[in-house]
Design a protein around this nucleic acid. Structure first.
Length: 419
RNA sequence: GUGAGAAUAGCUCAACGGUAGAGCUCCGGCUUGUGGUGCCGGCUGUUGCGGGUUCAAAUCCCGUUUCUCACCCCA
């Protein structure tokens, strides 16, 4: 294992891994299409300022966990750490709101975060997500959550839980944060070191600390929902009613919070695979961020979205769910002189839509059959001089071992009916 | 970023101070027109890397890199 290798936290996705990737990506694209979402692709490289303004520099994120550098012209650039800010940038830049008052967008692509790597957590990882821009109604939230739930179901992941909460509006956050600070200042001697730091940085995070003493200290903490405006609470109730109508099971989790400031009102997570994923059991996360577009220079527009990391999701998938390779056939001759016959048949079958492999080396039919078996092809067609003369091939079903002579012009049809 | 564990053939692992091994995979053969089961044979390693201790290090010690687990963070 000497020599060149991947940069820390980066990983190769090898051909044997691909069935899972295709399954996830195609399932997601199909789902998005069913809800009339359209794909958008944005650059991996963005102005650093996009994330500074979008995510905020209050946390460690921008400073410590983003890949940033000064370009030769002196412009500060960043490898995108997430999808949302770029989507919003493109939305504003191209005036998408003038084409449609509602934009339903989805994306898939690599993101970059300079975190400590762990199982299912990489520094370059693939994320996919959906954004619904221009609809602030509870029905929009409901559809977003429903899509996320249907997606996870479609992948065959069971034992999941859908958690929802409301963070109220922008001013709710401020007043609640102040209330938490003044409450926890009097509890400071009970809190762990991390939480004492969170007290100034990000007091909401104290609420989901795992230390027993902190959990105790939280018990009498002021409740977020007491600070949420009646309007926002109505929004949240309406969302819950609609989710019930959509037959989506959910649990209100009043302590569910987000690290970033731009979230407003609805936030949600799907958790699953606690046994497999350990502490990283959140597989889909989303929420409403009605203030972000204005923050990035657009006109105020309500927006909600969700996103998931593909690597983490793949850890939960069972391989037998991936569709097997079908319509594959191995075509071989019986001797060196059959090359011409072999490639003619191969060509014909490719035109008919089959995946076709042929042997390159000369060798015994035996060795070619061995290769055919290892190729995973369902069928093998043998075309030797004998067959060529009579205008047929020997078609062998590699699963059952049955074989028969089939006329060349009937070959494609014959395989179709057998699959 | 903090703390802990791991690293041996392509893969899963054994050897735990005394010449580095197995299973699987891969390659070839077992009547030159029949594979996946069987039998026979073959390839592959500076034991992650660099130092140290020792007559002798995969094995003990130090450093380093990568991975893994928990924490931090989580867009």
């Amino acid at each position: 294992m000497t020599g060149l290798q991947c940069v820390k936290g980066m990983h190769d996705i090898l051909p044997t891994d691909m069935p899972g990737w295709h399954f996830v990506e195609q399932s997601f694209k199909e789902l998005m299409s069913q809800y009339a979402y359209r794909e958008i692709r944005t650059p991996v490289l963005e102005p650093l300022e996009l994330f500074v303004r979008g995510i905020g520099d209050a946390t460690d994120i921008v400073e410590k966990e983003m890949y940033t550098f000064a370009d030769k012209g002196g412009v500060d650039l960043a490898l995108r750490p997430e999808g949302t800010a770029s989507i919003v940038r493109a939305y504003i830049q191209h005036g998408l709101d003038r084409q449609n008052s509602i934009n339903k967008l989805f994306y898939i692509g690599p993101m970059f975060r300079r975190e400590r790597p762990a199982r299912g957590r990489f520094r370059q990882f693939y994320q996919a997500g959906a954004e619904l821009i221009g609809a602030g109604e509870p029905a929009a939230d409901a559809e977003m959550i429903e899509m996320a739930v249907r997606f996870v179901q479609r992948l065959g992941i069971s034992d999941t839980a859908v958690l929802i909460n409301t963070l109220g509006d922008a001013d709710t956050r401020k007043s609640y944060r102040d209330a938490l600070r003044s409450y926890f200042r009097h509890q400071a001697d009970r809190l762990c070191q991390d939480c004492i730091r969170r007290l100034e940085n990000n007091p909401l995070r104290i609420l989901d600390c795992k230390v027993t003493a902190c959990i105790e200290a939280c018990k009498e903490a002021p409740l977020l929902h007491e600070h949420v405006s009646p309007t926002a609470m109505d929004h949240f109730s309406a969302l819950q009613q609609k989710l019930s109508l959509l037959n989506v099971d959910f649990k209100v989790q009043p302590r569910l919070v987000r690290g970033l400031d731009y979230y407003t009102r609805t936030i949600f997570e799907i958790q699953g695979g606690v046994d497999t994923l350990g502490a990283q059991s959140t597989i889909v996360g989303g929420g409403r961020y009605d203030g972000l577009i204005a923050q990035l220079g657009g006109k105020p527009t309500p927006t909600i979205g969700f996103a998931f990391g593909i690597e983490r999701l793949l850890l939960l998938l069972k391989e037998d769910r991936f569709p097997p390779e079908t319509r594959k056939i191995f075509v071989t001759g019986a001797g060196d002189d059959d090359y011409c016959h072999m490639v003619t048949i191969a060509s014909m079958l490719r035109d008919a839509g089959f995946t076709v492999e042929t042997p390159y080396a000369s060798g015994s039919l035996r060795s070619h059959m061995k290769r055919a078996a290892r190729s995973g092809a369902r069928f093998t067609a043998i075309v030797g001089e004998e067959e060529w003369q009579t205008g047929c091939v020997v078609l062998r079903d590699m699963q059952t071992g049955e074989q028969e002579a089939v006329a060349i012009e009937q070959l494609a049809g014959k395989m179709m009916e057998k699959q």
